[in-house]
Amino acid sequence: MSAASTPSRALRGRLWRLLSRLASLKLTLAILVLLAVGVVAAYLSDTRTVWALVLPLTLCAINLMAAIASNGIFRRQLPLLVFHLCLLALIVLVALGRMTYLKGQLELTDGTWFEGQLSAVEAGPWHFGRLDQVRFASDGFRIDYDPGMRRGPTRNAVRFLDASGAVGQAVIGDQTPLTLCGYRFYTSHNKGFAPTFAWTPAGGAGSVTGSVHLPAYPLHEYRQARNWRLPESGIEAWTMLQFDGALIDPERADEFKLPAEHVLVLRVGDRRWTLQPGQYVVLPGGRLTYQGLRAWMGYTVFYDWTIPWLLAAAVSATVALGWHFWRKFASQPWDGVEVPDGDGNA
């Protein structure tokens, strides 16, 4: 025996003992308890408690890796090995998903194109997506209401540019998102009215068309007004939509629709106007034309490339576990079950 091999063997022995400790089945039980406590703590806490989940999941991944590497049962029982590998894959995928996901919201006026801007966004630090390349437009929507103003199905016609740049068409809503470049766009329950204006600067520059998204309807039925700022002029304006009666009849089945008749109240400073579609007002710096009323639809957008892999890992884990239990239980009928001995054999 050489002098060099003895410390090497000792080191290997220490590493093996460490691996065995990390693979401990009692540690697994402690980790499951820690994870359950972490889940409940995160659920009950008002603040972000990411570490309550990250710590036990990290420990769980280490425990799983150590067990797979050192526990001989995984070489004798393939289904058990597959199940534990899938669990490990799930933890890794969830971690990767949280680092690369994107969740956001946007509102789109009928007839206008989405050009990559979100009104609210939350993303993982490694999200380098292609949202700026996504293009779609809403061509209007229909939402049914049951008596009592209970929202029914949403059907939103959209146009989009596909990967080749060709224009495609689809109807999305409720269970059916629009998926572009991995981003899933879902209609939300937020929708409302969008008075549309054209602003023509006095200097002769080209006019700019835009919409003001009034608060969601019918959620904010009695607050159909908001402040906004005219483009590149700094002028503050206040707009209110007025119409008679309830647009959605609460007594019968109905649907979301634009008011047949309405007026738009516009206030700039101390001056106030009542406008019909096509009418305009002259303001310092330009002319503001009320073009008419459209609808806007709110969308949520979600990106997580791990979703199909998570599904594959979860289904594989379940199949493997079912296979394991089947092999374990099939040898004895349920009505003649015997108590297994210490090796798990009946």
Binding site: K103, Q175, V301, L310, L311, A314, T318, F329, V337
Partner: peptide, 28 residues
């Protein structure tokens, strides 16, 4: 045995629920 059967079906319930939630509410 019953608990093992229950575990399989609770896992399937969570998977099916996640698929439904992704389609219905935009998050799994």
């Amino acid at each position: 045995r019953c608990m093992a059967l229950g575990f399989i079906f609770e896992t399937l319930m969570l998977i099916a629920g996640a698929i439904w939630a992704q389609d219905a509410w935009g998050r799994y």
